[in-house]
Structure formats: C-alpha cells, structure tokens
C-alpha cells in the first residue's frame, strides 16, 4: 500500500469534483485488496458511503431503480428482485462469500477488476496494468480466469462478475453523474472489450460516478435461472456461467435472454443464440443449437479450451431448468 489522501464526499457533486487519480470507495472489497498489493495506486480515495444511494425502488413504468451503494446481500434478498428477477438474486448469491456480499455494492460490482494473476502480480507483462508491455496470459497459465469470447491479442482476462451477467440478460441502464451532468449508459455498452486498449475497462469518463442501475421492466411471464459452473462448490469465480430468462407461450419461445460469465472479457450477451430460439419450440435440440451459436466465435487458449463445451453445457442446462 502507498499513502493516499482520504476524502469523504457528502454530496454527489463533491464526489465528482475530486482530484485527478482518485478512486471512489464504496464496499472496498476489490479496491482495498488491489491497493494493498500495490496494483491500484490512487492519490486520493474518496469515500462515498454517505451518499444517499442505498435504496431500491420500483419506478412507475415497472423498471427497478437500484442505488449504487445497495449491498449485494440486500439486492439479492430484495423481495422484488427475488420475485421478478430471480436470475439476478441467484447470480449474486453464487458470488464471493457472505462477508464479501455484505460489504460489496452494486456499483462496486460493476467496477470489479479482473482476476488474471499476471495483472495482480505487479511484475509480469500486462497491458491492462502497464499498457504496451504485453500479455503474459497468452502463452502462460490461462485455465480458470481467462476468456474464450471477446479476447484480443492484447488481453484475454475474463470478467469476474456474476451480478453483471444477470444484469446483461435482464437489460439495464447505468446512471452516472459527472462534472458535465447526468447521463445513462446502456448496460451492454458499459464494459468495453479489451481490443487494443485493455486498460480502458468501462465507458465512464474521468470523475464520473455511478449513482444507480435501472433494470428493465421484467419480461411478462418469464422464468429465469443463473447456473454457475466451477471446480469447487463455492467461493470460486465462474469457469462458465449462464444467466437465462425465457418466456414461452403456445409451446414456443416468445423471448429468450442468454448471458454468459467466466467465458467472456465482459459480461457476455449471446444475442444470436437468443435469436435462434425465438419462435421455436423449447427442445433439447434447439437449446443445443443455441449453445453452439453462442460460441461460434470463441477462441480457445492453451488451458481453457474446455470452457467452450462447458459454457455450452451451462446454456443447455440452465434453459432446460427454466423450461422444466
């Protein structure tokens, strides 16, 4: 850890007028870890825990507005989330541990950094930590926390969040405040593919602060499920996960949402796979075809080729579970 200035923001306005190279402190579960191992080196840490962003409210149009500081535990157990967005509740509860979920916040989860060991060791070449230095994961160990979708020759780290996978399936807007006012970023545009600049992980501008996530209104008659596959039964980032939402009527799929975790460099929405299901019968063969389509563009690395069939299994089983 290096010394930093500590500031406490009483208002959003104060928060967004912070000095350069500052970091917002919410739950701190990721920020403090990375500061302690010297990977993140903010000059100023701005504590935003006093901002009034801790409520969940149903909006008149049916959408759900979630404050940035709502804890993962609170969100997972919220009655509306449990009844209308089961996939989100299940995703949250499959992540981390009880203690971490109690501290971790909604906005903090959106801002989670990758688990790639070469990013975290402070020494190896890593384009995310030290742009232009190279990617040690390509050609190194890349079994568990590396992606097969959305990778580039600059970075292959997978996005670690479970919550974000569910939100990608549900559809959401991310409300941010900044020096230039408030704007809403579509959830699917928030996280960026690594491309040539893996150090740019999200669409926030300097000093912009996430204030809310607004979930789309639930799809009428939907059933949803989050299935997380990993080596051990708990406390491990997904090797592959699938968040699905399906609405059927008259024996055919009316609407299907499929989002994937553990396999993509960002929370991965499998739109073409969803498209392939619409208007079709919810059969094993159609699920398998959707799963195949979801990974059409996948690129395997030395140790993670198994994530392609594993991700396909996650899709098929999660769809089978909601249809059963």
């Amino acid at each position: 850890m290096r010394t930093f200035d500590y500031a406490r923001a009483e208002t959003t306005g104060q928060a967004v007028s912070s000095a350069d190279n500052s970091a917002f402190l919410a739950g701190g579960t990721n920020l403090l870890d990375l500061v302690k191992i010297d990977i993140m080196r903010p000059d100023t840490v701005v504590d935003i825990n006093r901002l009034p962003l801790k409520t969940i409210e149903r909006m008149p149009d049916g959408r759900l507005k979630i404050g940035a500081l709502v804890s993962n535990t609170t969100l997972a157990h919220d009655p509306i989330v449990r009844s209308d967005y089961a996939v989100l509740s299940e995703a949250l509860l499959s992540g981390a541990s009880t203690q971490l979920r109690n501290k971790a916040t909604t906005a903090g989860n959106l801002m989670q950094r990758v688990r790639c060991p070469y990013f975290r060791d402070g020494v190896s070449a890593c384009n995310k930590r030290d742009p232009g230095s190279g990617c040690s994961a390509i050609g190194g160990f890349n079994r568990s926390v590396h992606a097969v979708l959305g990778t580039s020759d600059k970075c292959i780290a997978s996005h670690p969040s479970d919550m974000c996978v569910a939100m990608a399936a549900i559809g959401a807007g991310i409300v941010v405040s900044g020096p230039e006012g408030e704007r809403t970023i579509d959830f699917l545009d928030f996280h960026l593919l690594p491309g040539d600049s893996p150090e740019q992980e999200h669409a926030l501008k300097p000093n912009e602060l996430i204030t809310h996530v607004i979930l789309d209104a639930p799809i009428r008659g939907n059933r949803s499920h989050y299935l997380k596959l990993r080596d051990r039964a708990s406390y491990q980032f997904a090797l592959a996960s699938s968040g699905v939402i399906v609405a059927t009527s008259g024996g055919v799929v009316q609407d299907a949402r499929i989002a994937l975790g553990g396999v993509g460099t960002k929370p991965w929405r499998a739109s073409r796979a969803e498209q392939s299901l619409r208007g079709k019968a919810p059969t094993q063969a159609n699920f398998e075809e959707a799963a195949r389509i979801a990974f059409e563009d996948a690129k395997a690395y030395k140790h993670n080729a198994f994530k392609i069939p594993l991700g396909q299994q996650a899709i098929v089983r999660s769809l089978t579970t909601v249809i059963a």
């Binding site: 060991p117 040690s136 190194g140 160990f141 926390v145 051990r232 039964a233 406390y235």
Partner: peptide, 24 residues
C-alpha cells in the same frame, strides 16, 4: 502453479489456490 516461463507463482492466494469449502 508456477508460470513455465518466468517461474513466478500464479495462484498464490486463497481465491485461486482451491481447497474444499464448507459447501464441498
């Protein structure tokens, strides 16, 4: 695990060095 090129540790923490949890 150690990186085969650098010899540096890869999973030297409680999150990635897996031991059984209560759920296991």
């Amino acid at each position: 695990e150690y990186d085969p090129r650098s010899g540096l540790p890869v999973n030297n923490n409680y999150a990635e060095y897996l031991v059984p949890t209560h759920a296991d």
